[in-house]
């Protein structure tokens, strides 16, 4: 493959990492959803580029799934949930942005340090792609850990899953069945979490998880 091809792949994967950082400090719900949609578009583009590079038509389907579900359906549905929950105007208290970003940078460094020696047998292209994917995954996890709002946690989880898909598409040869089943499981997780959000709100009048922690034991 030409250097340009791999540069484009890196650009797309790198933009996912960048968007993950954007996700980390968004404190407004709608902005968060928009960035997540962007994240999914970047994923779709990246996977589609991989499909083109690897001459693997089934990866186009993967890209399409990512675009449809994660880029359109899930953000729209989450937007409805947010509106119905009435939290679209609230500002989430994000744990101090500065340290979180620094920690995120450290995580990216870590994933590069880990991935590059481990995958020495592979070509440089796959290696760097995997490093990006691992950073996306870790950043998603970091987001789940630092957020209190359940909706933001869902988004953290989804972006983590985007990292998984990125890794799988770069590593040549994830079967379509696996991809589809992962996609469906994410959808189901989304539905379940969505239902739970409403149930939680019904009981506690909030989706702040701290309220849950206080009354654990008798509820849930």
């Amino acid at each position: 493959m030409s250097p340009l091809d791999s540069d484009i792949a890196h650009l797309l994967a790198g933009s996912m990492v960048l968007l993950s950082f954007l996700l980390l400090y968004q404190d407004r719900m709608f902005a968060l959803l928009n960035v997540f949609a962007l994240h999914a578009y970047a994923l779709a583009c990246s996977v589609a580029w991989q499909a083109y590079l690897q001459r693997a038509p089934h990866l186009f389907i993967t890209a399409l799934i990512a675009l449809l579900f994660k880029g359109v359906i899930i953000p729209l549905a989450l937007r409805r949930i947010v509106v119905r929950l009435g939290i679209h105007r609230s500002i989430e208290t994000v744990v101090s942005v500065g340290p979180t970003m620094l920690f995120g940078i450290a995580l990216v460094g870590l994933s590069i340090v880990v991935m590059l020696p481990v995958t020495q047998a592979e070509g440089p292209f796959v290696r760097e792609d995997l490093a990006f994917a691992l950073s996306v995954l870790l950043l998603g996890f970091l987001m789940m850990v630092t957020r209190r709002n359940a909706v933001s946690q869902v988004i953290g989880f989804m972006s983590l899953e985007n990292g998984l898909v990125l890794a799988a598409s770069g590593a040549r040869g994830m079967p379509l069945v696996v991809e589809i089943s992962v996609g469906f499981s994410v959808l189901i997780a989304f539905i379940v979490i969505g239902i739970f959000l409403f149930r939680i709100r019904e009981r506690f009048d909030t989706v702040d998880l701290q309220a849950l922690d206080m009354s654990r034991g008798e509820a849930l």
Binding site: L107, V114, P117, L138, F141, V145, R148, L209, L212
Partner: peptide, 25 residues
């Protein structure tokens, strides 16, 4: 612990393992 604390534990374990893998050689 709270759910978030559990997640933090899992995350810390993951990061710790990755650091071990990264500094192994």
């Amino acid at each position: 612990l709270t759910i978030r604390n559990y997640l933090t534990l899992v995350f810390a374990a993951l990061v710790a393992l990755l650091i071990i893998v990264g500094t192994w050689r």
